[in-house]
């Protein structure tokens, strides 16, 4: 079943003080996110990721198009009770303690009064802030605020969770914990939609990703599909001091590091290369097909417009 359905969502702002001129933040966007998947929304800074999330949250109104979450309109309060949202670089009421803030948000989300305290405590423990529940948020570090932000997004047990740059401000341990948490959410059957420009996070976590640039969708698909685009090349690694001349003749591009040699060559020459190594009595360690990384795909998807934009200047 479809969790998020975006139907031609478009946003144009009028900028300028005296002479207003239109600035397109998001071109008509069409895409769907299925229930239970972790969906990565990728793009460089200013690509339109936050605008899309704000449109889905009903914080800004679309110029045209619409969106449905769990089959309901984005302004429907019944739908809002079933989603969680972590904004980019979140800022909370700093005069409240973390526990008070979570209890306040639990109340606004419709959690019954008698459950709010227990639920808040559970969330604080889940994000590793069980000792800081009584501390005012003005004394929190950026990383701690990010954890509170994640806790407030999931404390009412939403079906769909939206995270805008969830790893921002976190140290490596914190990032790993957030990745684990997102994985847990998937195991609980929740849909996670998160925006990021950190591709390694998306590659490690996402079932599917979409790439957006200059307000335009450039690509969408499963991470496996996007990164398995046929390169028709393999990488051979072997141990030994030399690169056989027959291997060079096959077009291998070797890189020697100590006693290990790494070389890529066309897949069609794979068998001949292995035979050449055997003849020279060199110890083959691995043969791996070369796959495009998500970064390669991302860079490829961003290039054409930049070339065009550069040509226009």
């Amino acid at each position: 079943m479809t969790a998020i359905e975006i139907l031609g969502l478009e946003k144009t702002y009028n900028v300028g003080f005296w002479r207003k001129r239109p600035k397109c933040a998001l071109r008509p966007l069409h895409m769907q996110v299925e229930e239970g998947e972790i969906f990565g929304f990728l793009g460089p800074n200013g690509a339109g990721k936050t605008t899309t999330l704000k449109l889905l949250m009903g914080l800004v109104f679309p110029t045209s198009g619409s969106a449905r979450i769990l089959g309901m309109e984005t302004h429907d309060p019944r739908m809002r009770a079933q989603i969680g949202f972590l904004p980019e670089q979140p800022y909370f009421y700093d005069y409240l303690t973390a526990r008070e803030l979570l209890e306040y948000y639990a109340g606004l989300s419709g959690v019954p009064a008698k459950e709010r305290s227990r639920r808040s405590q559970e969330m604080l423990e889940r994000v590793g802030l069980h000792d800081a529940g009584g501390l005012q948020l003005r004394k929190f570090s950026k990383g701690m605020l990010q954890r509170v932000g994640i806790a407030q997004a999931i404390l009412h047990e939403p079906k769909v969770v939206f995270f805008d740059e969830p790893m921002s401000g976190l140290d490596p341990m914190g990032r790993r914990e957030v990745r684990d948490l997102m994985d847990q959410l998937r195991q609980e059957g929740k849909t996670v939609f998160f925006s990021t420009h950190i591709l390694s996070d998306a590659e490690a976590l996402c079932d599917r990703v979409a790439i957006i640039h200059l307000g335009e969708l450039r690509g969408i698909g499963s991470v496996a599909d996007l990164t398995s685009s046929a390169q028709n090349r393999v990488e051979l690694i072997w141990q030994g001091p030399s690169v056989p001349s027959s291997l060079r003749a096959l077009g291998a591009e070797p890189h020697i590091a100590g006693s290990t040699v790494r070389a890529t060559l066309l897949e069609a020459n794979q068998d001949a290369a292995i035979e050449a190594l055997r003849r020279e009595r060199l110890r083959l360690i691995s043969v791996v097909p070369v796959r495009a990384s998500l970064e390669d795909y991302f860079v490829q998807k961003l290039k054409p417009t930049e070339a065009v934009a550069g040509g226009r200047q």
Binding site: K54, G58, P77, R78, R80
Partner: peptide
Amino acid sequence: ERRTLYTVLSRPVR
């Protein structure tokens, strides 16, 4: 300005 509103209005609050 402080964006505290985002986490309020994304809930079932009109």
